[in-house]
């Protein structure tokens, strides 16, 4: 299975979204005990970034860094996620520690993780509109959205 996945000279994996879940499961089995990091990148202006020839560049990329304590090594997985359908399977059932990271990616970048047990905004307020880390979200000042404090508990 791992051999089917495109790999670049730096050792990064470039699975398709269909391969992603199985690849992570296999890596988990082969000794990568914990998931260091999961984040999303918005390549809005850079569809021409260097990628292995077979990989079709999409707007979003989900980047996962797995670490093995036994082998003392790291491996990076980069998955292309199209803008029209920004969904990617959750890693929660392989690495429960990705729960907060996936919520963060959803909150700030708008990537949806089907199967995630509690996919709500984590950093921004509940009623916030938009996903601030996207490149087309204004970097400038946002007027204070101060409202009356929520219902008295």
């Amino acid at each position: 299975m791992i051999d089917d996945v495109i790999k670049n000279e730096a050792g990064n994996y470039f699975p398709t979204r269909e391969q992603y879940d199985a690849l992570v499961a296999e890596l988990h089995k082969s000794g990568y005990e914990y998931c260091s990091d999961l984040c999303a990148v918005d390549y809005l202006q850079h569809f021409d970034r260097p990628l292995p020839a077979e990989v079709v560049a999409e707007r979003f990329e989900v980047v996962v860094n797995l670490t093995s304590v036994k082998m003392r090594s790291r491996v990076r997985i980069r998955v292309q996620v199209p803008e029209s359908d920004p969904t990617i399977p959750t890693l929660f059932y392989h690495y429960p520690g990705t729960e907060a990271m996936e919520r963060e990616a959803y909150d700030l970048m708008g990537i949806v993780f089907p199967g995630h047990p509690d996919l709500t905004r984590i950093l921004m307020p509940e009623e916030w509109e938009g996903h601030p880390l996207r490149k087309d979200y204004s970097a400038e000042r946002v007027p204070v959205q101060f409202k009356h404090s929520p219902a008295i508990r």
């Binding site: 950093l123 921004m124 307020p125 916030w128 204070v144 959205q145 101060f146 409202k147 404090s149 929520p150």
Partner: peptide, 9 residues
Amino acid sequence: QKMAPVLRQ
């Protein structure tokens, strides 16, 4: 922005 209502309260 999330803390603002709490601070006011």
